[in-house]
Nucleic acid binder design. Structure first.
Length: 788
DNA sequence: TCGGTTCAGAGTATT
DNA sequence: TCTGAACCGA
């Protein structure tokens, strides 16, 4: 055992080793990009187990993505031989699901509660608004969803939310109605998984103590991404006696917009009186110039715990910077650079093209496609999000739980069975009058409620679900899925559809996914889908007499039985909701990798292109008006820079087509923040003078005389056809020497670019993008502009 | 029920 | 400019 543990430490640097071997005390590991974070996390677990400080069932390790959880388990099992089944390693949502399945009754949920993904949740909200006859224009479903999830992430039930005006009161009312609907249908959304689990522990002392006694060591990955509720959940489980080991990087916090709160890192340090703060600053990924750029950039942020990356690898190549005339030019330039990289012997898959927003990918794709360069775009629909897959899953959900109105409505008339909106409305009326589900209402419906024809068809659907349930009950999962696809009519439907071939293939893929799921979960391959291994014998007799409602401390004392306590079908449905699957992408053999900067987090590439480095785009203009928005954008840039191992390219364009308009942007301030000595300008570096911050107020400046440069003689030719007033303004503008795209200097706002012109005579105005100072309309008759 | 037209909106994303 | 959703007529 001793040899084993020292083996584990081999190759770790001093800080990594210190982190791995910390005594059983709370710790915060500040792990910089490329500093071996995952290695430390997994080695820490292996170390604790190998040195007998921790038994596998005492471990709780939490991540944000299934991918990270899988990676942790894979690497862990390569280090030590352990029973991974006994450990709780997974995502917050996955673990909460696990807990709620085990204690569904205590959590006031049906045994077969279903999980709503974001799509499902939005559909449920729309359905509710419709049923309540709420105008979607007054209450946009997305806003309501955002509101509800926000409340849940704050740990607040509708009853607890304070509303100070009528508008908010309405939201709270609808939140309450949504809660009721979910409860009635036996479904929970993602935020609900967290909140239910949290409330369960909070309310139920026995359960809380049980889990607190169990999880001696709690490890959290990407701690900077936790939201308020996740942090409280962790605190709850940590109790007074357990050890919380948090790994994160405040400089890589880029998910504030979805509720992540970097402040949790500081709160953790304070509230847990963390004495072990270890910084992992040695970087094993990027060359020196790249790291120095990253360090210099992020030093512009104020709210930081502080950290500087360094490397032994040497300075490497300078960071290349390229200015281009247009977005199309940028795409073309990319193509040429990538060709050169490939010519020099590197693989296309060693190249990543990063951008701030998805919309930017189209032009780049176009250019790569035209140049016959294979590429792969991350993003887009994922496997379990596809319509045909969701349809098949809806049938499976109805087999498992027929109160699920969302699933019911999704497939009651798909494939079409002549059940129209009218019949469904009547059925919904019936259901809401009695506060029961649609399937329940259907069971009670009589000829007085619906037309005979409609009732017959609905009954046939009911019968279909019933017979599917019967005929699949004893089948293994994959066969059951195949049967459902066949007998529901989905298969036939798509085989007649023009472009149904791909959908059929996806449905076949679903059958395969079911088969491999059964294998991975360790079910016997032929376990019938409905077989639940729960038997009362595991129940702790003391507890069950002591507290009859507390059914499943048993699951706690025999955790290995937990997944087995669910039927293969129930487990598969959870899996399908909790893991949307891989992003669809043509699995190009050797393809250039294209993705947003967000999607690139955690990845690394030999060559990285960061494109569209323009004010308004990156940093994104929307972010500038948000609290802390700029700092988050800067962290995003930091993440982007630190993806590169060897060579980093930065590019920006003078003009870009955005929302159907040609826009003129100044180059990103983030380029200005990089030290000159680490850069290599491929295009000449142009002067860019920034206005001093703090003079942003704008009004028409009366009494100021316009001092314009003399009129250029090529202006007329630049007049573009456009709206009449625009053309007039262009005429007026040309007299002043202005044209769209013209660079100008303003005393107060600094340097800018003319974006548009309008009005005539004394009313002629120019819209100018002053970058940091924003977009301004200036009256040409008063504004003091200088051409540059 | 399908197919076309119209209209608004256009940021990043995991579970 | 482009897309997706909503809507309307056959």
């Amino acid at each position: 055992m001793f040899i084993l543990t020292t083996d584990l430490l081999r190759g770790l640097n001093e800080q990594q080793r210190a982190a791995v071997t910390l005594p059983a005390q709370h710790a915060l590991i500040l792990a910089g990009a490329g500093s071996g974070k995952t290695r430390v996390l997994t080695t820490r677990i292996a170390w604790l187990i190998a040195s007998s400080q921790l038994s596998p069932q005492g471990l709780l390790a939490v991540t944000f993505t299934n991918k990270a959880a899988r990676e942790m388990l894979t690497r862990l099992s390569a280090m030590v031989t352990v029973n991974t089944k006994a450990m709780w390693v997974g995502t917050f949502h996955g673990l909460c699901n696990r807990m709620l399945r085990a204690h569904y009754r205590d959590a006031a949920l049906p045994a077969s509660f279903q999980i709503l993904d974001t799509q499902d949740q939005l559909a449920a909200i729309k359905r509710m608004l419709k049923a309540m006859q709420v105008d979607e224009d007054k209450i946009p479903p997305r806003n309501l969803m955002h509101f509800i999830n926000g409340c849940k992430e704050d740990g607040q039930r509708a009853a607890a939310v304070e509303a100070f005006d009528d508008y908010n009161r309405r939201f709270v009312e609808l939140y309450a109605a949504y809660e009721a609907q979910c409860q009635r249908e036996g479904v929970v959304d993602f935020a609900e998984l967290l909140l239910r689990s949290f409330e369960l522990l909070q309310r139920n002392q026995l359960l809380r103590e049980h889990y607190q006694l169990r999880f001696r060591h709690i490890l959290v990955d990407e701690f900077q991404d936790t939201n308020g509720l996740q942090y409280r959940w962790l605190k709850m489980l940590a109790g007074a006696g357990n050890v919380l080991f948090a790994v994160g990087d405040d400089d890589q916090s880029i998910y504030g917009f979805r509720g992540a709160d970097v402040g949790n890192m500081m709160a953790f340090e304070r509230e847990f009186r963390v004495e072990n703060l270890i910084k992992l600053e040695q970087n094993y990924r990027s060359a020196g110039h790249i790291l120095d750029c990253a360090n210099a950039l992020i030093a512009n942020n104020h709210a930081r715990l502080g950290k500087d990356l360094w490397t032994e690898a040497g300075e490497g190549e300078a960071v290349r910077v390229q200015e281009l005339v247009s977005d199309a030019g940028e795409a073309q330039w990319l193509v040429e650079q990538i060709k050169a990289i490939v010519r020099d012997g590197d693989r296309r898959s060693d190249v990543a093209v990063l951008y701030r927003s998805n919309a930017q990918s189209r032009l780049i794709e176009h250019a790569l496609f035209s140049a016959n360069i294979p590429y792969r775009v991350y993003g887009g629909l994922r496997f379990f999000e596809r319509a045909e897959v969701k349809h098949a899953l809806a049938y499976l959900r109805l087999i498992e739980q027929d109160d699920d109105d969302g699933a019911f409505l999704r497939v009651v008339n798909f494939p079409t069975r002549g059940i129209g909106a009218r019949s469904l409305e009547q059925l919904q009326d019936l259901a809401s009058r009695q506060s029961i589900s649609l399937m329940g209402a259907l069971a009670r419906a009589s000829a007085s409620d619906l037309s005979n024809a409609a009732l017959t068809r609905l009954r046939q659907f009911q019968q279909l679900i019933h017979s599917l349930r019967q005929s699949t009950a004893m089948l293994p999962l994959a066969e059951a899925v195949a049967l459902v696809i066949e007998q529901s009519g989905l298969s036939q439907h798509y085989s007649h559809e023009k472009e149904g071939q791909e959908r059929l293939e996806n449905l076949q893929e679903l059958v395969n996914a079911a088969a491999s799921f059964v294998m991975e979960q360790g079910f016997q391959p032929d376990t019938p889908i409905s077989l639940v291994a729960t038997d009362g014998s595991d129940l702790n007799p003391v507890l069950s007499t002591f507290m009859p409602d507390m059914q499943t401390i048993m699951a706690g004392s025999n955790e290995a039985a937990l997944t087995e306590a669910m039927s293969p079908l129930a487990a598969f449905l959870s899996h399908a909701s909790l893991e949307a699957g891989e992003h669809q992408a043509l699995a190009g053999d050797d393809a250039v990798q294209m993705m947003t900067v967000h999607a690139a987090k955690g990845l690394e590439f030999q060559h990285v292109f960061i494109t569209g480095l323009e004010e308004g785009l990156f940093p994104h203009e929307n972010a500038l008006s948000e609290a802390q928005g700029l700092e988050e954008e800067r962290r995003l840039m930091y993440v982007a820079i630190t993806r590169a191992r060897e060579r980093l390219y930065l590019s920006f364009a003078q003009t870009r087509m955005l929302h159907g308009q040609t826009r003129y942007h100044l180059r990103s301030r983030f380029i200005e923040e990089l030290p000159e000595q680490h850069l290599k300008w491929l295009s000449p570096r142009t002067q860019q003078r920034w206005a001093q911050p703090g003079s942003a107020s704008f009004g028409f400046q009366h009494g100021m005389s316009a001092s314009m440069a003399p009129l250029g003689n090529d202006q007329a030719s630049l007049l573009a056809p456009g709206r009449k007033s625009e053309a007039d303004a262009m005429g007026q503008g040309s007299k002043a020497g202005l044209r769209i795209g013209q660079s100008v200097r303003h005393d107060r706002f600094g340097d800018g670019v003319v974006v548009s012109l309008e009005g005539r005579g004394d009313d002629a105005r120019a819209q100018i993008n002053f970058g940091r100072q924003g977009l301004k309309w200036l009256a040409l008759s008063v504004a003091k502009l200088q051409l540059i």
